[in-house]
Design a protein around this nucleic acid. Sequence first.
DNA 1: TATTTACTTTGACAATGATCAATTTTGCTC
DNA 2: GAGCAAAATTGATCATTGTCAAAGTAAATA
Lengths: 229, 229
Amino acid sequence: MILETRHSIAEILSRQPLFRGLSEVELAQISVGCREFRVKKNEVLFHKGDIPEGMHVMVMGQIKLALPSSQGVEKIVHMCGPGTTFGEAVVFLDKPYPVSAQAMSESLVLLVSKRVMLEAMESNHMLSRKMLAGLSSRLHELLGDMESCTLRTSMQRVVCFLIQSGAADETPVFDVALQSSKQNIASQLNLAPETFSRVLGHLSEKGLIQVKGRTITVLDRMQLRNFTA
Amino acid sequence: MILETRHSIAEILSRQPLFRGLSEVELAQISVGCREFRVKKNEVLFHKGDIPEGMHVMVMGQIKLALPSSQGVEKIVHMCGPGTTFGEAVVFLDKPYPVSAQAMSESLVLLVSKRVMLEAMESNHMLSRKMLAGLSSRLHELLGDMESCTLRTSMQRVVCFLIQSGAADETPVFDVALQSSKQNIASQLNLAPETFSRVLGHLSEKGLIQVKGRTITVLDRMQLRNFTA
DNA sequence: TATTTACTTTGACAATGATCAATTTTGCTC
DNA sequence: GAGCAAAATTGATCATTGTCAAAGTAAATA
């Protein structure tokens, strides 16, 4: 039974981008250091300040990483989706979690112990390399968020968000499907939900976008970009 | 002459925390991939958007990493001091610099090429481990800054800054020596210089701190901390 | 030391965005 | 589909913080 579980965990791991390319032996070793978590919608996986045991691998679902504040409000720092990892940094730091993690939908998460991760990386340089790349990406992403928060107006933040959410190509018209509620997006953009709503309203009035529930249609990428500066 | 220079670079490297413990051969190999930069005060080492060639090691001086904005203003993200590194992330990412780097005082910086860093890490796992730890620290630090910017008032930001700048012990009275100008600190705290000045003024009035040029004396750590919540 | 330049402080004012409250809409559960 | 709860919108108001301007101070340079 346990062997069966370990085996299935190894199989799950093998499908995650981070662990792709590892040998069966390596996967087996890592799977031994794994714990499986099935969390329901709104369930909290860990709180800011908790002592971390390892790194998390998202297999299924959606989890938000957020900074709680003394009052009820919180600032969402990142949304994690399938195939991604989070909490990498705590593997190397001996510090409590700097954020809280809460499931936005029913999710399946693997917790890989620090020790096992460190050992696996010691014997497999490619894994180290991927972890380095992952942390680097996260750092750049966070810098981008910082830039948004500190030197852009609410309008600019929303416009940048819309443009970045579109395909990389230069199609003038495209749809943005919000992957979560608007208040959620607002928090990521560091805006009050009301402000977000109003900004979308303004852009609609000007005929630059069209809002239908969680789908926003950008009607004129060029003109929209003018609001960036 | 060149050999002489390479040798001295290897020696400098051996004194940097990141490279401490490497063999002479390893240091020699890395030094081959190094370029030395001596920058004067206010000189720009690189701009946001430039294509990175490698990672930087600060040997001497002080360099600020900042996000420029369309208008003249900028947001300082980090101050780099001797013995630290910056631009680690670009080694793993193939992306332009997300920040600009400008010397705040005459500085000596080494640029270690991406290729050489990657090779050195491949053969020395301890180096990978240190890079991972460094990136992780930076990430947590940035999360802390994010927390500050997004869910604290100007007063709270300043108070947190003062308390964090003090020794870890619980001495009620201590000095904080600002390592740069007040407008500089203000930018790091995401405040207008005027606001920073006013907040310090308020705290002085209440008898919680005393400001003398670039030295701030905290008179009552406990009471000051009350402003955090 | 004199002179200029940069930094800091202070005041008055403006504006962006948050908050509060009420209403409408959406989506979920039974 | 009815009823309920959560989410979104809209309006009115307010507060925090930024901006502009001016004066004062410190520091750098000749």
